[in-house]
């Protein structure tokens, strides 16, 4: 009998595919929230596997902050074409122009929190009833309590005390008019699982993740890429360093790490040896101890 078991990656893959199919079966208008980061890339590839040889039966939705790395945008357009899937873009700039969102000011200004407004507006505009995301429970403590099928009220809010129990493989996607679900098919994956999967499935990823030369500055212990949106303080002098990114958020707030890992194998070695969490490079999570919990409650990814 012993030949009938799966490796941990195959078991996680199988679980994620089951969840993605369940979304398409239970909801009328699902979408995949695509950030251009490795987690949502893996989610897109899992979606292809789930429905092959049919095309992915839902669009990718990109909440565009306007502060993206150019590499992310290039990759996004390539992937959409590769998968033959529809792309919907929700623009944070538009939300700002319409007065729906207010730009932060100051040196550490970020459009991260503003995304919530655009995200909820986009969900409402297209009447999406399920939005899948690549969030993982190992990322952050508020995420550790998240369900696969996460119920959101008509205001898009998350109530951690009022979550539906989730048992076996039985996912309950019933909802009232106006409510929606966030669904996290790779909940049980860790950062390492994602990298190992990218390696074993030979999934192409944006160049940002590989070591490259880049003009950067150092601020509060974080290495930030120079960009039109990063206001430099007088004492901050850019220099060229060999770096890579562990996560792929907005350009002004995503910290790089010094690295020479220019292949997937070397990245995996580096992740295995790393003694810091990947969100440790994210300025948005460092604002307070409960930054993620608070953002999630209000409808963030």
């Amino acid at each position: 009998m012993s030949q009938y078991y799966l490796s941990h990656l195959k078991e996680l893959e199988s679980e994620a595919i089951f969840v993605i199919r369940e979304v398409v079966a239970q909801f009328e208008k699902p979408a995949l929230l695509f950030s251009g980061g490795k987690d949502s890339i893996v989610l897109a590839y899992l979606s292809r596997k789930a429905f092959y040889p049919a095309r992915i039966p839902f669009p990718l939705v990109h909440i565009d902050t306007g502060h993206n790395f150019p590499e992310t945008m290039e990759y996004r357009d390539w992937l959409v074409n590769e998968l033959g899937v529809k792309l919907i873009v929700g623009s944070v700039q538009e939300s700002i122009d319409k007065g729906r969102a207010k730009e932060e000011t100051g040196f550490n200004a970020s459009r991260n929190a503003l995304q919530t407004v655009t995200l909820l507006d986009t969900i409402e505009q297209y009447k999406f009833d399920a939005a899948m995301g690549g969030a993982r429970r190992d990322e952050e403590k508020a995420r550790a309590k998240e369900r696969f099928f996460s119920h959101r009220d008509e205001f898009g809010q998350w109530d951690p005390k009022n979550q539906r129990p989730e048992l076996w493989n039985l996912f309950n996607g019933r909802k009232h008019q106006g409510e929606h679900f966030r669904v996290f098919p790779i909940s049980n994956w860790t950062e390492m699982d994602v990298w190992q999967y990218i390696q074993s499935e030979r999934i192409p990823i944006p160049k940002l993740y590989y070591a490259h030369q880049r003009e950067v500055i150092e601020r509060d212990g974080a290495i930030l890429s120079t960009s039109p949106w990063l206001k430099l303080k007088p004492n901050e002098i850019p220099s060229i360093r060999t770096v890579r990114f562990r996560t792929c958020g907005d350009m002004p707030i995503t910290g790089a790490v010094e690295s020479t890992a220019d292949t997937i194998e070397k990245i995996i070695e580096e992740v295995a040896a790393s003694r810091k969490t990947e969100r440790g490079t994210r300025a948005d999570d460092k604002r307070s101890e409960t930054a993620m919990e608070d953002r999630k409650k209000s409808g963030y990814f």
Binding site: A144, K161, S187
Partner: peptide, 14 residues
């Protein structure tokens, strides 16, 4: 208040 999920791995298992 609820079920929290934790992850760890050794060279033998996840």
């Amino acid at each position: 208040i609820d079920v929290a999920y934790r992850y760890f791995a050794t060279p033998k298992r996840k």
